[in-house]
Design a protein around this nucleic acid. Structure first.
Lengths: 350, 350
DNA sequence: CTGTTAGCGCCTTCAC
DNA sequence: GTGAAGGCGCTAACAG
């Protein structure tokens, strides 16, 4: 494990000074083609790799960005990561990744650590910290791009999906199918995203004078929690309506997949006995049996766009405080087997 | 966007020199409790965050590690990332992540960029570069931990799953069920992992004098490719045997999920007409219909262990060249519906 | 106990 | 065209 070769080593070998090497390497400043070529050759031969740490210290640009995701287990976030990583790397930046679960304290701590790393900017997906950023985001002196979350701040930009509209589309579809007793399988922690989906569910029912009281919350968004929570949901429905729900709108696909599995254990078939709809359109949804009705979010593109936005912010003059942007996406409803082909009249009464 | 506060700013405010601030902050060197307390207070008030870039430059330890994964879309890798990230962050390290697809050139380039970042160590999952590392891994002067791949080198350690044994277990199970015409749905690119699984398939059949010639390769490991490739696989089987395969052993779960979906489109039911087995045991496997027989790899633990191993290497004296380690895991066969409950005699002949 | 000096590897400004 | 000097923010060695 010997020391890495530095520009000084090259300078010594080439019989020039290090600044000259530095210039040659970066193709800056006019100099004789002969010496430049010689220096480049020597650098290659010696296996030189520029030390980005040292460079960052002097240029005040580390060419790195931080990405915070709140739950890497959810394939939704994998795609976000993939999009951000692809764009960022294509532009010569490196990516710091942290996965924080739902704990806002962890999230804030991670952001602080990124600041310590002197990243040029930060992307945060599905932030759980929301308002708690208010105090700090402006202070840290670098642009932030939020994905599917919101916070106030002059440096804070956002890329987000219109979850309210999306959830409305899902609810419209369920109501069009004739379902009336529609339950909601949500998440325990509250976030802007969750609020919008739940709100759309509630309002869609209320507008038609239907009962919007049957809902349960899973502690985390995993298939397993979907399985266990759907049992409570059915109980709740039986208590309220005397029957299982006719349809269940799930906060996301993982919970929906679990719900279908759990319902089967209860002897309830989807969609014959209960219809189920999810949210996100994970790749597997189209291949489940029954295939899952859900709302497709362009998650890879959202990751890409968030990164693109951040990089464009970085290219700008630092003093040209750009106005906070907010880019809004609309997903597409994917109607599949899990909500179709049954008229609710035939639904078995538990 | 004003400059971040440095120890010099604090020093000025506290009327001491910066080294003193540095010591106070790190709790090093004895000094009067009064001044230490005062310095800490001022630092907090001014919102000081240590600049890890500068620190790394002088200490030659950046407290960062790089992680390379070859396909972040595969939930298998998500869990690896999750495991590595959790351990690394718990120890105060930051994680650089890069996802490189199957291209070995990209992989090498990314590793080089990590070196430029002066990371303390590197974890590489499912490397596609294999032997091509031979030249460089020893040169870069930092420990490497490979997950499910192999390369020679004094600094190169490995954590891997015994895929050969795992694939044998799957094949044993299929043969025990009485299947004889067993096809393999693999991957186009070759890797150690792929080689082991395919080899086990081939040898298990050969040992019993069965035909091991029906195999196709998907270009990438995605559900969609499973869907399209299984069609070719069935064609191939019909050409060879006059019937579809009795069972298909898939390289991994994504391909298996796609295969089941594709078979259904062909009018073939799993497991009645064709049995299907996968590899990895993604969370969704137990909730598919039919649920998927597969081999569970402890992927989160493997990520954790790889990180743990790397960190322990970093704690050691740098000159104490430890011998390359290799930790081997054994997965567990998960027998589920997709391969069960049908005697092959009843298999429909296509 | 604290301040001074030096240097990590690199880039920038200014002489020559 | 190229070299010398200075400094990014921090820590390490040595004074005092």
């Amino acid at each position: 494990m010997r020391r890495r070769v530095s520009i000084k080593d090259i300078a010594a070998a080439a019989g020039v000074s290090h600044p000259t090497v530095s210039r040659a390497l970066r193709g800056q400043g006019r100099m004789s083609e002969a010496t430049r070529a010689r220096i480049l050759t020597i650098a290659r031969e010696m296996g030189y790799t520029p030390n980005l740490v040292a460079r960052g210290l002097v240029t005040q640009r580390t060419y790195s960005v931080g990405l915070v995701v709140t739950n890497i287990r959810d394939p939704f976030h994998s795609e976000i990561i993939r999009g951000v990583e692809a764009v960022v790397r294509a532009h010569g930046y490196s990516l710091f990744l942290a996965s924080t679960t739902a704990d806002p304290d962890q999230e804030l701590e991670v952001v602080r650590s990124f600041v310590g790393r002197d990243v040029d900017g930060i992307v945060i997906a599905s932030s759980q910290a929301g308002d708690r950023y208010a105090e700090m985001l402006d202070e840290l002196g670098m642009p932030i791009v939020l994905i599917n979350s919101h916070a106030e701040g002059d440096n804070v930009h956002a890329v987000r999906h219109d979850d309210y509209a999306g959830a409305c589309a899902v609810m419209e579809h369920l109501l069009d199918q004739g379902f009336q007793r529609i339950a909601f399988l949500g998440l325990g922690r509250s976030s802007r995203v969750h609020g919008e989906r739940r709100q759309a569910w509630k309002e869609a029912l209320r507008r038609r004078g239907l009962d919007a009281s049957v809902a349960v919350s899973a502690p985390e968004s995993t298939i397993e929690h979907g399985v266990t929570q759907v049992v409570h949901l059915v109980e709740r429905a039986r208590g309220r309506w005397g029957t299982p729900p006719q349809a269940i709108f799930c906060y996301n696909d993982l919970l929906a997949i679990g719900a279908i599995s759990g319902l089967r254990r209860l002897g309830l078939e989807v969609p014959q006995d209960v219809a189920v709809a999810g949210f996100d359109d994970l790749e597997v949804c189209a291949h489940m049996r029954p295939s899952l009705t859900t709302l497709r979010q362009p998650r890879y593109e959202m990751g890409e766009d968030a990164a693109q936005l951040l990089l464009s912010l970085l290219e700008q003059d630092r003093r040209a405080q750009p106005k906070p942007t907010e880019k809004l996406y609309r997903g597409e409803l994917q109607i599949r087997e899990s909500t179709q082909g049954v008229s609710p009249q035939t639904a078995r009464v538990g």
